[in-house]
Amino acid sequence: MTKTMLMMATALTMVAGVAGAQDKPKIGAAVYGLNAEFMQIWAEAAENHPAVKQGLVELTVFDGRYDALVQQEQFETMITEGYKAIVFVPIDIEAGAAAVDAAAAAGIPVFGSNTRVNSDKLTAYVGSDDVQSGYMEAKHVLDKIGCKGNVVIIEGPIGQSAQIQRLEGNMKALAECPDVKVLEQQTANWSRAEAQTLMENWLTAHPGEIQGIIGQNDEMALGAIEAVKAAGLKPTDFAIAGIDGVTDALLAVKAGDMASILQDGHAQAQGALDLAIAAVLPDYQPMSEIWTQYPDMPWADGKAKEYNVPWTPVTAENVDALLATRQ
């Protein structure tokens, strides 16, 4: 409802794509929604993939508008239009399965990226392990408070795969610190404003008792920081962490207010695209620089089922370089 303009733009791109390049193999990228920064970085990386730039393939990015049904319809369009491969970032771990089934039945390989989908028909998956990032951020918070005291957890929308897995990671780290008590644990739906209100109320309910704040994404950690400031307290007196590495969080890390774990959407997009292109063009060698950037994630002839893009903790040392890529 709110993305009419983007939808029109996508439709125009589609028409242009169909009319322009009949002979080049068409690859579709169906992403759950383009309203937030992370997915934009992802889409930009896909469009800037060297093979796309050189015109080896024709790439179209479809905006799923945060609706599983819209994504399903986009799959049907791609099947009808004779796309050769699909890169898929589903809105929901379960609801995407039917779309993957439909493409597989039409003989079109589907490559998952960023978000998992509960389907064994996926040709391969390129993403980052959310359990690991949940563990890393919680570990950072617990280390900073010396493995004792009280923490709160601000969760993503209950039931989303990232929330489930990041919580699993949070709990794994918390299990290593039995003296730490989780005072509160509630969702703020990835939203900065919601997290701010929640944190203000928690600071009131537990005055002086909270030492650590585990935000399951950066936006919510940033909201918590604002709540801490509004209560007249100093963020540096708390251990606060988030996940994703969005620009505002990079600035907050630079200010010393929080820790963040960068999720490399660029690598997730380009890696999945390399796999999709390899499935379409014979004798294709991966062209993205990410394979040299992450030696821990070998190309494996494009035959592996899972590619695990490593997380990068944002530190005082690398934050300026990361910020430079966002200008």
């Binding site: 709110t2 993305k3 009419t4 303009m5 983007l6 383009l34 309203n35 937030a36 920064e37 934009q40 969005v246 620009t247 505002d248």
Partner: peptide, 11 residues
């Protein structure tokens, strides 16, 4: 839509 166009979708 104008909000997204104006901000480029970014904060």
């Amino acid at each position: 839509g104008l909000t997204l166009l104006y901000s480029g979708g970014r904060p």
